[in-house]
Amino acid sequence: MPPQPCLNITSTPTPDPHFTHVHGKFYLTFTANDRIPLWEAPNLLDFWEKPKIGPVWRPPPNTPHSSRLWAPELHALQGRWYIYYAAADPAQGNRSHRMYVLGGPPASEDPHDASRWEFLGPIQGMDQRQWAIDGTVFELDGELYFVYSGWPMRPQREWNDFREDLQLLYILRLSDPTTAASEPVEICRPHQPWEHLGHIGICEGPQWLEAPDGSWRGLVYSCAASWTKHYKMATLEYLGGNPLDPASWKKSTEPLLQDSDDGQGPFGPGHGCFLNFGGETVALFHATDSDTDGNQGRKCRLQRVEWSDQGPHMGEVLGSSTRDIDMFSKLLVHYDCIHALKVLLTIA
């Protein structure tokens, strides 16, 4: 069976895309470095050329959180909109990245109103000595959890502030959307060869994924190097029990999605998010058109997620990309999902 095709969603770079579907609209935010952008459109196809565009937050200049704003995520939690993102001090650079939170309007209202957003600071109670990026929030069995990518702890139980070649995934429990209620626990480190690029080992970009029938729950994370064609996604299955116990998580033995070796592209799929709709699941992630684009040409793509008793499947490698929804549907003729995908892409 040939690899599944992917559908091009954005025409300009939108690295680390994160989508939310609410109030009959799709909202997209992504890494823009100097601001938190928020785009909206009535359907996913409209993000190509006619989304409503506008930032909802620009940090005050020359503050410890005014540079390299990465991987924002929009979440409706406990009746209010929140955006979680990483930011750095321009005087310190990457080593100063920490996680921050914005508070927005009530979740019943449109989040695309910049006047309603306020800076809430870092997550209260989260250890600010640790380098941290790519935070995400999810609810599991009635509790809120925060998962992020961080540099490791030294044997002396001090955080590394210089180890840029090793990133692990950590989880902590939240008592509310802005307050940590536990210490962070390591649940994933790069020990597979495909999680490495030379001496660099990276696990980042965690995203919650759940089968429509609840038969599989867990995290999809990105690994290897985001600035290369070797970027890819893998899974961390939640086995049940205490999410703060590393034994509750099981890493996949192979990547969920990576670029094909046919040299045709797209390249370097990673840092995706997931939408369940009409019994179907789709992944929205970034990938480049050229294997030499680095981190400058990462555009959003869509691909279907299939489910089996073993969990999610995406064909292991990226297939050809297209913008033509009818062609995309024809390429999917051997999958029973055309109607659901057309509804998802054109919903008003």
Rank of each mutant, 00 (worst) to 15 (best):
P2E: 15
P3N: 12
P3D: 09
P5T: 08
S11D: 10
S11P: 01
F19Y: 02
T20R: 12
H21V: 09
N33I: 00
D34F: 00
W39R: 03
D46L: 14
G54N: 03
V56C: 02
W57L: 06
S67T: 02
W70F: 04
L74A: 07
D89M: 06
P90L: 04
P106K: 04
S108D: 13
E118H: 14
G121S: 08
M126Q: 11
Q128C: 04
R129W: 09
W131I: 13
G142D: 08
Y145S: 01
Q156I: 08
F162T: 11
I171S: 03
A180T: 03
A181R: 04
V185T: 06
V185H: 02
E186R: 04
H191T: 12
H191E: 12
P193D: 11
W194E: 09
E195L: 06
G198W: 09
G198L: 07
R217Y: 09
V220E: 06
Y221L: 01
C223P: 04
A224E: 05
A224W: 04
K232Y: 13
L236W: 00
P243E: 05
L244G: 06
S248L: 09
S248V: 08
W249A: 02
W249N: 02
T253S: 13
E254K: 11
E254F: 14
Q258R: 13
D261A: 12
P269M: 09
F274M: 09
T281M: 02
A283R: 11
A283V: 12
A283F: 10
L284C: 00
H286G: 01
D289P: 09
S290D: 07
R298H: 09
C300D: 05
L302S: 00
E306D: 15
E306T: 15
G311V: 10
R323P: 10
M327F: 15
F328S: 05
K330D: 15
L331D: 13
L331F: 15
H334M: 11
Y335V: 12
C337W: 10
H339P: 05
L341V: 14
T346H: 09
I347T: 11
